[in-house]
Amino acid sequence: MSPIEDDDALIAAALNGSAFAWEKLVKRFEGRVYNLGLRLTGNPTDAMDLMQEVFIGVYRNLHRFRGDAKFSSWLFRIAHNKAVDMNRRKRLLMSKSKSATLEEGDVFETIPGVPRDEPENRLGEVQLNRQILGMLTRLPMDQRLVVELKVFQSLTFDEIAVMQEISENTAKTRFYTALKKLKDIAEEHHVLS
């Protein structure tokens, strides 16, 4: 790897005001952050908002990034916190607009990226994602986050515990509960179809 390809070099250059280096750094991670956003929020608009908030947060805190941690772990910790913030804001907004109590999982609308009347052949892989989103969005946010971190970001329960400020055992239980719930949802759908 040449020095300019290195995350650290790009960070240093971005800190020094290089917009070019910043764009390069963002391009390297935006796909992972956007897809995380899709899975956590269930729709492209919120995923886009979340991704932008994450990178603004990254930019503002870049000077605080210490080289001893991996940049990607640091970035995904910010992403995790922004997702929690965003969910909290949404809940607050919704509880203000509607006095009715909401089930936690309903905060983000389940609007998969493609309209329902899209021709079948164009869906293909997106169909799969829609099914996955349909399942994930039925989980409460704390469970959805554990699934995201465990299955998609491949974190250990120890790392998840640190990020969510819970015990490792709680992280394990939460993941298991979420997985069981997803399994039930999937079975429900298979029975229906």
């Binding site: 935006e30 796909g31 956007y34 897809n35 899709l38 899975r39 991704m51 990226g113 892989e125 997106v126 799969l128 994602n129 099914q131 996955i132 399942m135 994930l136 699934v147 299955v151 998609f152 997985l179 997803l182 399994k183 999937a186």
Partner: peptide, 14 residues
């Protein structure tokens, strides 16, 4: 089975 069906997620372009 549930876990591996989640892993079928196709990366969507930004």
């Amino acid at each position: 089975q549930t876990q591996s069906s989640l892993r079928q997620w196709q990366e969507q372009r930004v």
